[in-house]
């Protein structure tokens, strides 16, 4: 073959370029540790998503330390959950699957981006160092309202993040002269124990109780309320745990005739 010198040099330079590109990609995998979406997520029957251990209740879960798992179900044309909150300085593993057609789960302005193929689970881990707000969008055509498919990922400061849930059970009314109980149920989704204070304000009284909610558990706090301390008629109450609060109204009524002294038992 009759190859010009310049052309020989160019062939060598081209090979250097190609090998250099492959070397850069390899560096990205070994140095910063970038991993590709692969088959680790396994497969899933889309009809059985609701019965799946992981996907039955999609959302954020604490694994331990600064590790979290977020499960997301994509379907035309929304994500469940549509808004995700995680703490800064966390390592989050996403598990995403589709109920119907092929979607993507792409966190805008980041390199967190995966296809979501029905029958497959996309698993990917990313570290979120700083608080920020990101949009999530679907970048694979999934039907006529594809362009409306979006979500949000909020990375909040570590000290503002928890997985605490508060629910309160209380009667709607009590007969004058009786006592009732307002029960606060505090659930702690974090793996560590949660030490906090539950407080109840009713009328012009405040009751407080310190509790330790075990990791991945819940604790009930019962406050006894005596109608004698309350005004006749409606009394507003508020139960507070950290930043969560729940309110309701307790009516003190004068019993008439043989009516049952029990109040209703609706949740506030």
């Amino acid at each position: 073959m009759n190859i010009h010198t310049y052309e020989k040099v160019w062939i060598v330079a081209s090979m250097v370029l190609i090998v250099g590109f492959i070397a850069t990609i390899t560096y990205g995998a070994v140095g910063p540790g970038i991993a590709m979406i692969d088959d680790d997520g396994g497969d899933i029957n889309p009809d059985e998503i609701n019965d799946d251990e992981r996907f039955a209740e999609p959302g954020v879960e604490h694994v331990g330390g600064n590790e979290y798992e977020v499960t997301v179900v994509a379907q035309a044309w929304s994500y469940t959950p549509s808004e995700i909150e995680i703490p800064a300085n966390s390592e989050v593993t996403f598990y995403v699957t589709s109920r119907d057609v092929t979607h993507s789960f792409s966190v805008v302005g980041t390199n967190v981006n995966t296809m979501v193929v029905p029958g497959q689970v996309s698993e990917m881990t990313a570290k979120f160092d700083e608080p920020d707000e990101y949009g999530i969008l679907c970048n694979e055509y999934c039907g006529e309202y594809h362009h409306t498919m979006e979500g949000k990922l909020n990375v909040v400061p570590e000290d503002e993040f928890d997985l605490t849930e508060l629910s309160v059970e209380a009667d709607d009314e009590i007969d004058a002269g009786n006592e009732t109980t307002i029960t606060a149920n505090v659930t702690n989704g974090m793996q560590e124990d949660l030490e906090t204070t539950v407080s109840l304000e009713i009328g012009n009284q405040t009751q407080e109780e310190d509790v330790t909610v075990p990791g991945d558990g819940s604790e009930e706090v019962a406050f006894t309320v005596d109608s004698a301390d309350l005004d006749e008629g409606d009394n507003d109450w508020t139960v507070t745990v950290d930043d969560y609060e729940e309110s309701g109204t307790l009516s003190v009524v004068t019993p008439e005739g043989n009516e049952s002294a029990d109040g209703g038992d609706g949740d506030a």
Binding site: W10, I11, I18, F21, M36, I37, D38, Q120, E123
Partner: peptide, 26 residues
Amino acid sequence: LDPGIAEGYKFIAMTNTMFLLLPSLL
């Protein structure tokens, strides 16, 4: 970025793709 395909197969595809730059550079 597809799930269900191992990273190794993706790497092989990349190597082939990169070497296919050669005919275009030539």
